[in-house]
Design a protein around this nucleic acid. Structure first.
Length: 656
DNA sequence: GTATAGTCACTTTG
DNA sequence: CCAAAGTGACTATA
């Protein structure tokens, strides 16, 4: 127990279909092998069972070639409006100028880093994007059933890894554009860039099957910030349209089948009551003002929804909500599966005909992500009126953190987290500080690309403009006491402390756990893992007394996964700077600790460990900093890969 | 300064 | 091959 044993390498994601895969093989494998064959767990749709709930007589016009306008008495009244709007749209379409596409002879760009096309003085695009490997989506409808625990973890890791690549590419594209100093003639749109690059490299998930129902590795409540992100994981395949469906010509029975919808509030005739949605079909809108200007037709996604209702096929529902903390100002929440109970043709608020669908949420699903978001919002402002019972403390940190850390227990009478000394940051032995803090920078108004502190970090910033970790490194040097930059400097993030309202809560499964009342964006700082640091010698004395310690060198090296673009860039080099020896200290969290030691263990975690230096220069004693590996929804439990078997965690020893 | 409306450049699918 | 789906960044205006 006193010796420091290395933890196993958990960083490879072997393909379960090949039993002999090694970590090296997995990394070298072509991207197309990332999606394992799903055959054994799939239910084919060759034999649909029609007549699920509703007879078709509630549909006025099931013929897709038959204009619904003839079904409306009001048609004559609106025909003149229709004619005018049609003229308008034709005129508008002609204004669009054709942009020449790269010719089919263009070779793959030898420099894949040049993902941002740069127009030169003559406004010619100097860099040709890589040639497209266009792989159209399959039309084979399947359900994924009865995933075992191993498969669930595998797919979760796959989805997480894919989203990490998407996010770092997105940030990368925007950072690169900024670094190039391009005129702001066009919007940055790293969201689109990232998706295109990944598509060209075959990294989009679930394109070989059209999945009905849940997507493996995507949980109810999962959060996304961009429409393209939904396409990349295969949750919703339309970059703009709100209804995703298999077309009639590709469907086995010649009928279109809808599989997912997005409720974004873009249609005035939508009514969203959570479990029940009156969803308006698409179409009939004015392009510039998004107002209804024509009757909708029973075709495309609208017909797909009607057919899905007919066959009792459930649809995934994703809600788009305004959210100020999101990079796009919006957040897309996966809210689970719904069934379509009715559909009918109605006159909408603007007086034009619209198709409406009554969607009802299926039973036995986790709570809706969108209602959890709302609950968390009210908990942030008035916790005691939302949850009158259960809050033991409204701040166990006693003002030592920037934001309060709550303590919640509605299960038993344990109040243990009240009875220790809360420390917001780690306590090092005094000798750690003897070497001072090294040289500092002179960047009075904040660090720049070529400053001393950037070069300490291998010539690149560890964080983006918003304090998001760009990629994991063996060690990050933040600006310190000898730097002249302000606290708001881009290179000071983890030292500025906690920004989310955390809650230590009692759990039947894990004893204590930690969750946040705020949405935590992937890559953002969570908190430090704080305790009293003991040297190896001190630790040996300590454990002879039978007390237990936390050994930080056992935490899995999850930072290597964050920002790893080796699947994108053939010349990608993993960060190896600086080279540091394995951590050789232990941490005593028995008397002084912070919120971190209540975080549970998971082999498929949502929090990673990143080592950081800022207040001294001793490479042997870095701060253990925690960052989000995913967009973590409010009230979802945080978890770290402690790197060893489940029964061992510092947390469990101390806090049960 | 802060909401809101308008404009522009996008990409994928069917 | 093109029409249709709407977003997200940015800019102008109230």
């Amino acid at each position: 127990m006193g010796s420091l044993i290395p933890f196993p390498d958990l960083n490879s994601f072997p393909d379960p279909t090949t039993t002999t895969t090694t970590a090296t093989d997995a990394a070298a494998a072509a991207p197309t092998t990332l999606i394992p064959k799903l055959e054994p767990k799939l239910e084919p749709f060759d034999d649909p069972h029609p007549g699920f709930t509703q007879p078709l007589n509630s549909i006025p016009n099931p013929n897709p070639n038959h204009s619904p306008q003839t079904q409306l008495d009001e048609t004559n009244v609106y025909s003149e409006f229709n004619r005018i709007s049609e003229l308008f749209r034709t005129a508008f379409a002609k204004q669009n100028v054709d942009v020449p596409n790269p010719s089919a002879d263009d070779v793959v760009d030898p420099n894949p880093l040049a993902i941002v096309a740069v127009p030169d003085q003559n406004n010619q695009v100097a860099v040709v994007p890589p040639k497209r490997r266009h792989q159209p989506r399959s039309s084979e409808l399947v359900r994924v059933l009865d995933l075992g625990l191993d498969d669930q973890r595998y797919f979760r890791d796959l989805v997480r890894k894919t989203r990490m690549i998407y996010d770092s590419l997105r940030v990368f594209a925007e950072e690169k554009r900024r670094a190039l100093g391009l005129e702001r003639r066009t919007a940055a749109r790293g969201d689109l860039k990232a998706a295109t690059v990944m598509r060209d490299r075959g990294l989009w998930l679930n394109r070989d099957k059209r999945i009905v129902g849940s997507i493996p590795g995507v949980y109810v409540g999962d959060l996304f910030f961009f429409r393209m992100e939904l396409c990349v994981v295969g949750l919703h395949g339309q970059s703009q349209a709100g209804i995703d469906y298999v077309t009639a010509s590709h469907s086995s029975n010649g009928e279109p089948i809808a599989t997912s919808v997005i409720v974004s509030g873009g249609y005035e005739d939508d009514e969203d009551a959570g479990d029940v949605i009156i969803y308006t079909g698409h179409g009939g809108q004015d392009k510039t003002h998004s107002r209804q200007c024509a009757h909708q037709k029973l075709e495309g996604g609208n017909l797909g929804l009607e057919r899905s209702m007919h066959y009792g096929i459930e649809v995934r529902v994703i809600r788009g909500m305004r959210y100020a903390g999101s990079p796009s100002g919006k957040v897309y929440v996966y809210d689970g599966l719904y069934r379509i109970f009715y559909s009918w043709f109605d006159v909408g608020k603007s007086g034009f005909g619209v198709y409406k669908f009554k969607l009802v949420r299926m039973e036995n699903q986790p709570e809706m992500g969108s209602s959890v978001l709302r609950l968390a919002k009210s908990l942030r402002t008035e916790p005691l009126s939302v949850r009158p019972v259960g809050y033991v403390s409204l701040d166990i940190s006693m003002n030592k953190e920037n934001v309060p850390v709550l303590l919640y227990n509605d299960i038993d009478s344990e109040h243990d987290p009240m009875y220790f000394e809360y420390i917001a940051t780690v306590v090092f032995p005094p000798h750690v500080y003897q070497g001072g803090n090294g040289n500092g920078c002179d960047c009075i108004s904040g660090c720049t690309d070529d400053c001393l502190c950037t070069s300490k970090n291998g010539g690149e910033f560890a964080y983006d403009q918003n304090g998001i970790l760009i990629r994991g490194k063996p060690l990050i040097f933040e600006c310190g006491t000898n730097c002249r930059c302000p606290p708001s400097c881009r290179n000071r993030v983890s030292q500025n402390g906690v920004r989310n309202r955390f809650e230590v809560f009692r759990s039947r499964e894990t004893g204590w756990g930690v969750r946040s009342l705020d949405l935590i964006q992937a890559g953002s700082f969570i908190c430090e893992y704080a305790g009293v640091v003991l040297t190896r010698e001190q630790a040996q004395l300590f454990t002879m007394n039978g007390d237990s310690l936390v050994y930080p060198n056992r935490f899995a090296d999850r930072w290597t996964e964050w920002g790893d673009l080796s699947q994108i860039f053939s010349d990608y080099v993993r960060p190896e700077h600086p080279s540091i020896p394995p951590l050789d200290f232990a941490m005593d969290v028995s008397r002084m600790r912070n919120v971190a030691c209540y975080i549970s263990h998971s082999s498929s975690p949502n929090v990673l460990v990143q080592l950081v230096l800022y207040d001294h220069n001793n490479l042997l004693f870095p701060h253990i900093m925690l960052f989000a590996m995913e967009n973590i929804p409010p009230l979802r439990e945080l978890s770290i890969d402690y790197g060893v078997a489940d029964e061992w965690t510092g947390k469990l020893r101390i806090c049960n």
